[in-house]
């Protein structure tokens, strides 16, 4: 192994990858949420459809899409490698253990939360991304773009989907509450002056982002009629 692969296959190296990809995925969440806010526009989905058309066809976005997929893959791959290593580091567990006395639930269950998010992600892609990119969405009259908005409305009339989305966003919130500040710790970006802000910001960020996403299905389920 050369120094580069050695570095990123060490435990710290892998945590650095987790952190960098994690923060990158956070930035994706911001962009995604901002874009999705067009769903709240009461224009029959015009803004949203224009936005989604742009996202699907702009060459810069398409390139970033590849980076995004790589980000997810690295994040997931390293999570699996680290989890397996961590399990192997304690082959025999304790008969009695009270970790709640020394750490938060979310910090100990990032794998579980991540898995929930992954399942959600697959469902989510299946719901919207696959039909938008590869499927046959109905067109919008007199426009160049297709009607993804209609898909959204349809999906969020299904209580199972709405439930899944909301639960997943709660998982996302907890994942981020630990993950956001943890990423800075793993990258060594701590300082007496700034760390308290990062921690507070991280919690606010996690809650707002997740809440923002969770409101979409709820909004469509309760307030939008076909």
């Amino acid at each position: 192994m050369n120094w580069f692969t050695k570095t990123f296959s060490s435990t710290i190296g892998r945590k650095i990858i987790m952190s960098v990809t994690g923060l990158f995925l956070c930035s994706f969440l911001v962009v995604h949420l901002v874009g999705n806010l067009t769903l709240f526009y009461r224009d029959g989905g015009e803004a949203f459809n224009i936005y989604s058309h742009f996202m699907a066809n702009n060459p810069v976005i398409r390139t970033m899409e590849i980076v995004l997929v790589l980000g997810f893959l690295f994040h997931i791959y390293d999570a699996i490698v680290l989890t397996r290593r961590n399990k192997a580091a304690r082959p025999v567990g304790y008969a009695e253990n009270h970790p709640q006395e020394n750490s938060t639930w979310s910090s100990r269950n990032m794998g579980l939360l991540g898995t929930i998010i992954l399942v959600f992600l697959l469902v989510h892609l299946w719901n919207f991304f696959v039909p938008a990119r590869f499927g046959e969405l109905e067109g919008v009259p007199n426009a160049e773009y297709t009607n993804l908005y209609a898909e959204v409305v349809k999906a969020f009339k299904n209580p199972i989907y709405v439930g899944l989305y909301v639960i997943s966003m709660i998982a996302l919130a907890y994942h981020l509450i630990h993950g956001f500040q943890s990423a800075f710790q793993s990258l060594g970006l701590t300082h007496k002056k700034y760390t308290p802000f990062i921690k507070t910001f991280g919690v606010a960020f996690s809650v707002l982002i997740s809440l923002g996403f969770a409101l979409i299905p709820l909004y469509f389920f309760f307030f939008v009629n076909l």
């Binding site: 710290i12 290593r85 961590n86 580091a89 910090s107 990032m110 500040q181 943890s182």
Partner: peptide, 14 residues
């Protein structure tokens, strides 16, 4: 063969 750090903070707490 020690595990990686998940930043749970349990170590410092204990």
């Amino acid at each position: 063969g020690f595990g990686a750090c998940s930043n749970t903070g349990a170590c410092a707490a204990e």
